[in-house]
Nucleic acid binder design. Structure first.
Lengths: 213, 213
DNA sequence: TGTTGAATTCTACGGCTGTTGAATTTCCCT
DNA sequence: AGGGAAATTCAACAGCCGTAGAATTCAACA
């Protein structure tokens, strides 16, 4: 009576064929972390999504924290995207640096995998102080640093307020992302990237090189 | 051996004097919800902060959800603050409506009680879909509605893009709040309200009445 | 002085959590 | 053919969670 079918056989034990289970777990984890944050995502739910027992997650990743770290290893480096956008804006006369920045951000966030990863980081940072410190450090090092550099080279900067300018840029970007992808405020959530670039790009340009107190 | 001392007597039973326990619970709950969000805050921790048994929280409030609702009843109405700021900006020539808006926001957020309440709402909205719907509804009704109204009356609006403008304003405000009070990005977290008003106010003015695609 | 009702705590239940160790099945290499 | 390694599941642990009920103490009023 025990004729093992492919997928869920007798009970325990190895399955036939290439399983790809590890990747299934990673994908499910990215989804769950993205939707519910670190604390809200449970190992059992992730395992269930991947069609697998919870213990297998531990076999592969050792702990929830290490699973989170594995998931949050980004497939692209955000700092490079920012730098490319700023460089493109400097030589392309049809669009300003700010507009390029908005477009680059929205393009990255519109890829499902990226969006889940970023959302997971953001949601976790908002509920756990530990995650907040990590995210702050990461953003300061890889993103705000490059923006500050661009601000310094583009505009005529007297004092060292480049970091101030960069943080203003960051505040508008994170607010846009939050309103569009998390809160899904309605005209914003469905507006086209080009439309948003036209609306928000000049704000970033002014923060980067404009004149204010 | 059982001489009951004021504060924590024999064991169970009522304590002497006016306890003010209910308010202590409310205050502790506001703190906890603000720091950790709805899920992260536990009844037992709230009770411990208030120096009280967890069951007493249920005696007073019935359930965690009802406690949350009691805490989140705001002492002031944000919509009124927004309206007052916009009105002041219209007749006061030394500061624009956008600058008034920023100042009003920062003033509200700098009161500890307000900040905890708002943070609780925000953090909860970011991890629970249910809370997100509630917050979105609330913000749309009481805040974005008034901003949209102001945009419509102030600028020359052809189509019904007032909601679009209002949501842009909202995105910059929420981003500023997030960067300053949650992530505590450094030049922003300690900048003076006046400084931020000068930097961010014109952005809001442009979103309200400016020209873009 | 009782009696009633509110304030307060103790104890416990069932459910969910991250995590572990043993058992089982399959694959791959010799 | 056989044996070791990998993949997979089951069952259980201790701990925390929200919540409910009973017991106790105090205050106020008749």
């Amino acid at each position: 009576m025990t004729h093992p079918r492919r997928g869920h056989a007798g009970r325990t034990g190895r399955r036939g064929g290439e399983s790809g289970t590890r990747d299934a777990i990673l994908s499910a984890a990215r989804h769950r972390f993205g939707e519910h944050g670190y604390d809200g995502a449970t190992i059992r739910a992730i395992a269930a999504d991947a069609g697998v027992d919870a213990a297998l997650v531990y076999h592969f990743f050792g702990s929830k924290e290490r699973l989170f770290a594995s998931v949050m290893r980004l497939p692209i480096i955000p700092g490079d995207v920012v730098e490319a956008a700023l460089a493109a804006g400097a030589r392309d006369s049809t669009r300003s640096p700010g507009e390029h920045l908005v477009l680059a951000m929205l393009t990255a966030w519109d890829q499902a995998e990226m969006r889940s990863t970023f959302l997971g980081l953001l949601r976790s940072a908002l509920t756990s102080e530990q995650a907040a410190v990590m995210l702050r450090q990461f953003v300061a090092d890889t993103i705000l640093g490059r923006v500050a550099l661009a601000a310094r080279s583009a505009g005529a900067d007297v004092s060292g307020d480049a970091r101030y300018r960069a943080s203003l840029v960051g505040s508008q970007v994170v607010g846009l992302v939050l309103a569009r992808y998390v809160l899904q405020v309605e005209p914003l959530a469905t507006a086209s990237p080009a439309e948003l670039a036209a609306a928000v790009g000049p704000t970033l340009d002014r923060y980067l090189t404009g004149d204010f107190g």
